[in-house]
């Protein structure tokens, strides 16, 4: 039964979203009806090999799903599902490249407008990527190259069933990636040009020197955060990646918080000679208290994230050992 669900899962993946449930329901019934009939003819349950043989006869999941697509002239239905996936992957790689470029520009201490310029260049890059991918697949179609999977595909290579828990959608991940990138660019640029963070308040307040010393750690945190989100774009069901990312980000956050907690002068007045010094001291004390609370929450988060990671790993190892 597991192989049937895995087969249907693979078919569903290549179908248009609006028809996924309806089509797989119908296919499930068809497969089960065939199995019922064969089992009553044989007087016994079908073996695993017999079930796999039946699935093999139905054709590869991609090929079966492609038959539900309307015919297209430029790119045929047999390679259309693969085309969509390659195009999506290429566009996502372009998003990650643009995000990385923005971070690199901000990390180099260049003005914010340079990062924005790189970000606004994405539509041009996306059009170029779309053109090249489409051209490559149209050529493949035109010259008659085919993905001959019908005879060679092996049901045993179907991916395992995934848990029902809904993974984040790609749209959510792209939004998350954009927010992370914008925030990282703003923060990293702002450490060099504090007007971006303090606004008009720069006339009264500055960051203490410690913040700029922590720049490399902030940079690493931004890169790690964005990289994991970028990786999740390719496989939204990569739960282990999400857990690892939480552990690393919590650990990095804790290191930063501990350093900040040991620094008396988190903020300094723009004009130390004035009476503002005493007010800034009060703000620093309040900030230390706030950071202490955040650090305690972070320790709890780190412990929870690390425990989940270990539990998931042990559970995975057990399933492998049990052969499921």
């Amino acid at each position: 039964m597991d192989w049937i669900e895995r087969y249907l899962q693979a078919v569903k993946f290549a179908l248009p979203k609006s028809q996924q449930d309806d089509i797989t329901r119908e296919l499930r019934d068809s497969i089960l009806s065939q199995i019922d009939e064969r089992e009553s003819a044989l007087g016994r349950a079908l073996t695993e090999d017999e079930q796999l043989e039946l699935l093999k006869k139905m054709g590869s999941p991609t090929q079966l799903a492609s038959r539900y697509s309307p015919a297209r002239a430029l790119i045929g239905s047999a390679i259309l599902p693969i085309y969509w996936k390659v195009l999506k992957a290429a566009l996502m790689i372009a998003v990650v490249v643009v995000a990385a470029t923005c971070i690199a520009i901000a990390a180099a201490g260049r003005p914010l407008r340079d990062s924005l310029h790189a970000l606004l260049n994405y539509p041009n890059l996306a059009i170029t990527v779309f053109a090249w991918v489409t051209l490559a697949f149209a050529a493949l179609e035109f010259f008659g190259a085919k993905f001959c999977v019908s005879d060679r595909w092996d049901p045993r290579q179907l991916p395992p069933l995934t848990k029902e828990r809904r993974p984040p959608s790609r749209a959510e991940l792209i939004t998350q990636l954009l927010i992370q990138t914008v925030f990282a660019v703003w923060w990293l640029t702002g450490l060099h040009d504090q007007r971006l963070i303090f606004g008009p308040g720069i006339q009264f307040l500055h960051f203490g020197p410690i913040w700029l010393s922590l720049f490399p750690l902030f940079l690493v945190a931004a890169i790690v955060d964005i990289s994991f989100t970028g990786a999740m774009l390719f496989n939204p069901q990569w739960n282990r990646g999400r857990r690892i990312s939480r552990v690393i980000m919590s650990a990095l956050g804790l290191v930063i918080l501990l350093i900040l907690l040991q620094t008396p002068e988190l903020l300094s007045p723009a004009h130390p000679e004035t009476q503002a010094q005493s007010q800034v001291n009060a703000i620093n004390s309040a900030l230390h208290l706030g950071l202490l609370v955040v650090a305690i929450i972070n320790v709890i988060n780190l412990a929870v994230a690390a425990t989940k990671l270990v539990v998931a790993k042990v559970g995975g190892a057990r399933r492998v050992a049990a052969g499921s």
Binding site: Q19, S30, M58, G59, Q63, R67
Partner: peptide, 11 residues
């Protein structure tokens, strides 16, 4: 007629 032809045809 195989499933891959019949079901899309019905649809």
């Amino acid at each position: 007629i195989d499933e891959g032809t019949l079901y899309p045809l019905l649809r």
